[in-house]
Design a protein around this nucleic acid. Structure first.
Length: 255
DNA sequence: ATGACTCCCAGTGGGAGA
């Protein structure tokens, strides 16, 4: 079984690239973030023609998440139950016996901003809910755009980024609290090339200079960890014309 | 360096992203 996550930065703009990528990378499930469209504009027909059914959770202009799967999904949940949120950031579903939770974590803007306060509250609510999901669904994957660079080795210039958004101690503590639930950062289960990033700023030739952050993650539950075969970032779509600023991350499970 | 790019909604600019 193969799963992926990709922040497409506008599904409207990126749909042709997504279809190309799925044709070359026939995953069983993919979590998408930053759809930037409402559900009435979701391209169900085009994705169905490519063999994917979709559960979407969109909104106008910002945010928006979806899960695409080949097999049907059950028990679909939108956003974090009990956490009132205007922003469409989470979609979960069960496919082929695996609980898949896709998330577009808040950016946070700056550590002294209201948006950072929201990010902290959101992360706390997520952790509590994921703990409950994990108890109910031992075979679980939490994946998406976390907007957190967990360690200095996930940052191209850790000195310049020290204390900056995505790299604060508070954010990293929240990331570790997810690991403390038993979840495992699948990417770090393997030897990886140094300077592996999942996001590069559009500005300043950042991709060409390989100046990026690893902020898109795939966390697997203890029951799934022994089945993880590979986890890799696919930089290829970042070389497209008009690319997303994020690259997909792909997980392969045995069986 | 208050920059850079890209998206959106707007509408001939501005917010947000990260």
């Amino acid at each position: 079984m193969r799963l992926a996550t990709w922040n497409v930065n506008s599904l409207g703009v990126r749909l042709p690239q997504l279809l190309d990528w799925l044709a070359a990378n026939p995953v069983d499930a993919i979590a998408l973030q930053e759809l930037k469209l409402t559900d009435d504009k979701f391209p169900h027909a085009e994705l169905a023609a490519a063999g994917y059914q979709a559960q979407c959770f969109g909104q106008r202009t910002y945010n928006g998440v979806a899960l695409l799967t080949r097999a049907p999904m059950a028990d679909v949940v939108r956003n974090i139950p009990g956490f009132a949120d205007e922003q469409a950031r989470v979609i979960a579903g069960t496919v082929s016996g695996v609980r898949v939770i896709g998330g577009y974590f808040p950016n946070g803007q700056a550590p002294d901003s209201d948006k950072f306060v929201y990010k902290m509250a959101w992360l706390e609510a997520l952790r509590a809910w994921v703990a409950a999901e994990l108890a109910a669904h031992p075979r679980l994957v939490l994946l998406g755009d976390f907007n957190i660079a967990p360690e200095d080795r996930d940052v191209y210039d850790p000195v310049a980024w020290a204390g900056q958004i995505h790299c604060t101690d508070e954010e990293r503590t929240h990331f570790r609290s997810l690991l403390e639930l038993g979840l495992c950062d699948a990417f770090r289960m393997f030897e990886q090339p140094p300077k592996s990033w999942s996001w590069w700023d559009y500005r300043n030739l950042a991709f060409r200079k390989n100046q990026g952050l690893r902020i898109d993650h795939v966390l697997v539950s203890p029951a799934l960890a022994p089945e993880v075969q590979t986890c890799a970032i696919d930089k290829a779509p970042r070389r497209n014309e008009r690319p997303s600023d994020h690259a997909p991350v792909v997980l392969t499970l045995r069986g």
